[in-house]
Amino acid sequence: MQILLNGLIVGSAYALMGVGFSLIYSTVRYFNLAYGVIAVWGVYVLLFLMERFAVPFPIAVFLGALVSIVFGLGSYVLLFRPMYRRKSSPLVIMVASFGLLIILQNFASLVWGDTTKSVSLSDQILKGYEFFGMFITANQLAIAVTAVLMVVLLELFLQKTKIGMAIRAIGDNQELTKVLGIKTETIILWVYVLGSFLSAVSASMYALEIGVKPTYGVFFVIKAFIAAIIGGLGSVRGTLLGGLILGIAENFGVYVFGGQWQDTVAFVLLAVVLLWKPEGVFSKRRLVSIE
């Protein structure tokens, strides 16, 4: 049962990461692999602010997320949009995003170093809580609360605001967005803002558990990708579920096979989903050639 709880907590971080990634994909139709590394930069900024200027955790997360947004928008304007205008194929853009990932990750390594830095809520040691025979740490609680908060805000945004509806529409139907009277370009910019924000927040929360190091850039985008695939690309609810499933599966896997096989479990799960139900749990896109 404890494993289930741990899995849910981790899964909620994965879920949020996955949603940002999935939203970007369903809007622009290419995989932006630099997604994870801009989040990492956000976390490093968070750390910097907390350590150097004693900024409280929540504010630092927010400021770090702002930096991530700058990186995200910058990468769109400077790299992805020009490539899209040149009619580069999604594969080519994805490979370019991978190049960007490598650059940003290694810059992080040069600037911040390779050692894992830990992130904590505050200076004092916070106690955990016990309930129903399970134990939940303060960090885990923070992750869960933030995740729920983010999901609620996200749903409100997507359902109630004009931009949110446009973002939902563009995944299915570009014609509909014209009806709403919002330019595609505006929608894309908003999606990058939203995606970068979500990735930074989820990375910051997850950093409470695992800290931060440059190579997490790859790590985060891979987990986001897997969560999105399991749930079905383009489906917000599906991806949220996918993230939770991933978190739980990983924790069970670690329990049964040992901690070193955590990533392997994730990828095996991915392979299983792709083979058995390639559209994901709530599907909208197909990644498998029709045959």
């Binding site: 490979v95 370019a96 490598i102 650059i103």
Partner: peptide, 12 residues
């Protein structure tokens, strides 16, 4: 970083 830049330049 060079590999990353080479990739981006090539793709572009």
């Amino acid at each position: 970083i060079s590999y990353g830049m080479i990739l981006i330049l090539l793709m572009y």
